[in-house]
Design a protein around this nucleic acid. Structure first.
Length: 210
DNA sequence: ACATTAAGTGATT
DNA sequence: AATCACTTAATGT
């Protein structure tokens, strides 16, 4: 599909006509495979990715695996955090990583910046994203601080399942453990318990919510 | 068949 | 709930 068609199909209800035109003129249509890093911590944010299809993981994690999973981005979204850093000319403090095969429109940061002055529909879009994603972060922090790992793990599985529209989550216990910043054994044990309670069905590299 | 990687589990802290 | 020290199961070559 051509960029123009994709922009019309995905964003015509969200953005005003001139903005759609600008996305077509400045955006570059890109594809990425699972695990491809779209934006890296401590790097300049050259472009903002508007997600057309697939799921993107927003995380705080460095090369040593120190960090944590923050939230997902899906169709017709982008990272409010990345945009706010662009606005302040800061380097990225988050990593964006493809969770599935993804299609996105890469818009140069400079261009995105100028949209705030020109387009009400862009400002609305950003504020809405910001509210949604801030809410996800706050709930995440709350769960980390005040709830059990079992609760966090179940919520993680449900969230992943919901976002990917699949009752089966294709992940290793090890990777889930890294996302939740706990040990792999702890994840394996809780999953085993949930399987005994008939809440999940386990397989190698996959977990199905019953 | 053998090696490697993922997952399961008891013991200890 | 982390860490260690395995064991067992599933897959890749």
């Amino acid at each position: 599909m051509k960029l123009n068609d994709i922009v019309t199909a995905s964003f015509s209800k969200l953005f005003e006509e001139n903005l759609l035109q600008e996305i077509c003129n400045n955006g570059i249509l890109k594809y990425a495979e699972p695990d491809k890093i779209i934006l890296e911590i401590r790097r300049d944010i050259q472009f903002i990715p508007l997600i057309v299809s697939g799921i993107v993981k927003v995380m705080r994690r460095d090369g040593d695996g120190n960090g944590i999973f923050l939230h997902y981005l899906s169709k017709n979204q982008t990272s409010a955090i990345a945009i706010s850093y662009v606005l302040e000319g800061e380097k990225s403090e988050i990593r964006l990583k493809a969770q599935s095969n993804i299609t996105y429109i890469a818009v140069p940061s400079k261009v995105v910046n100028s949209w705030f002055l020109k387009y009400q529909s862009w400002r609305s879009f950003y504020f809405k994203l910001n509210q949604q994603q801030t809410s996800l972060l706050i709930h995440n922090i709350n769960d980390i601080a005040f709830t059990s790992l079992e609760y966090r793990l179940l919520k993680y599985l449900e969230y992943t399942s919901q976002v990917s529209n699949d009752s089966t989550i294709y992940s290793k216990h090890f990777d889930i453990a890294r996302d939740l910043k706990v040990s792999r054994e702890a994840v394996s044990r809780i999953l085993k318990k949930l399987e005994k309670e008939d809440i999940v069905t386990l397989g190698r590299n996959k977990i199905t919510l019953n």
